[in-house]
Amino acid sequence: MLIPTFIGVTLVAFFFIRLLPGDPILLLAGERGISAERYAELQHSFGFDKPVIIQYLNYLMGLFHGEFGMSMVTRRPVWDEFFSLFPATLELSFVAIIIAVLVGIPAGVIAAVKRGSFFDHSVMTGALIGYSMPIFWWALLAIIVFSGWLQWTPVSGRISVMYFFEPVTGFMLIDSLLSDQSGAFGSTISHLILPSIVLATIPMAVIARQTRSAMLEVLGEDYVRTAQAKGLSKLRIVGMHALRNALIPVVTTIGLQVGVLMAGAILTETIFSWPGIGKWMVDSISRRDYQVVQGGLLMIAMLVMVVNLVVDLLYGLINPRIRHR
C-alpha cells in the first residue's frame, strides 16, 4: 500500500500546486516586473519550459535518487531546510499530543463514569469550546493574558535569545540540557508551555469526547456487569477491563490527530514565531515555491503514513484479537 500511496501523493503535490493561479517567477519579480528574455532564462533554469509531464517525470526520477530539489527562493536544498526545521515541529507536536492524551483520556474516563454530573457537563462544555475555538485567536488571547498581563511565560520563540549554542539534535529540550548553560533548559520549558497547550487544545477536546463515548459504550457491556457481579473494585473494572477496550477508537483518534496537529502547527508556529515546517510551508505556498511545497507535502504525508502504521501495530498490543496472523 505504501508505494501507490507515495506515487499518489507525489501526483497530488506536483499538480495541485501548479493548478493554483500565479506564476512563481512573476511573484519573485513583484512590482518591478521582468524582461521577456530574463523570464525565459529563469523558466529554463527552473525547468518550467519543459512539458509538465516531463517535469513530473524528472521530479519523480530525482526523488528515487533522493533529490528533493532546491527552493526557488532561498536556493537551498529542500531536504536541508526540512530537516533544519522539522525537529522544532516534532518537539512541539510531541509535547502537545502528550498533554492532549494526559488530560483528554482521564477527563473523558471520569466524565463517562460520573455521567450526568457537574464534572461531566463541564468537561463536555470545555471540550466543545476547545474544539470550536479558532487557534490563532486562542493563541493571541493566551499571549496577551499569560505573557502580557500575568507575565508568567515569555511571548514567543523557542528559547530566550540570550542563550546561544549550536544545535546538536535540533530538539531544544535536549540541546539546552547538553549546552550546560544554567537556565537554558528552564527557558526552553517556559517557551514551550503556551504553544504546546494551544496546539493541544483541539486534540485534547476530541480525545476527551471520544474517550467518554467509547467508555459509555463499553461500560454498558455484559462483561462489565459480570465484573461488577464478581465484586471487582470500581477502579479495576474501569481501569483494566473497560478502558482497555475503549482505547481502540481512542488510539485511532489520536493517530488521526497527527494530521490535525500538522494543520494546527501552521497557525501556532506563525503566532509563536516557532521555527518549524508549518510556517515554512505556508510561506512557500504563497510564494509558489513549487519544490518546497512538493517536498514538504511529501515528507508530511510520509510521516502520517508512518504514524498510521504505528497505530495499526498498537491495536494489536491493546487488543490481542486484532493481531495479524
Binding site: 493571541l140 499571549i143 505573557s147 502580557g148 507575565q151 511571548v155 514567543s156 520563540g157 514565531s273 510556517k279
Partner: peptide, 18 residues
C-alpha cells in the same frame, strides 16, 4: 534579530522587553 512574523506578537514582545 528575533524573527517574529506576527505584528501583534511583536508588540507583546516589545512590551515584555523581549
Amino acid at each position: 534579530f528575533a524573527i517574529t512574523p506576527d505584528a501583534s506578537v511583536r508588540y507583546q514582545k516589545l512590551k515584555a522587553g523581549e
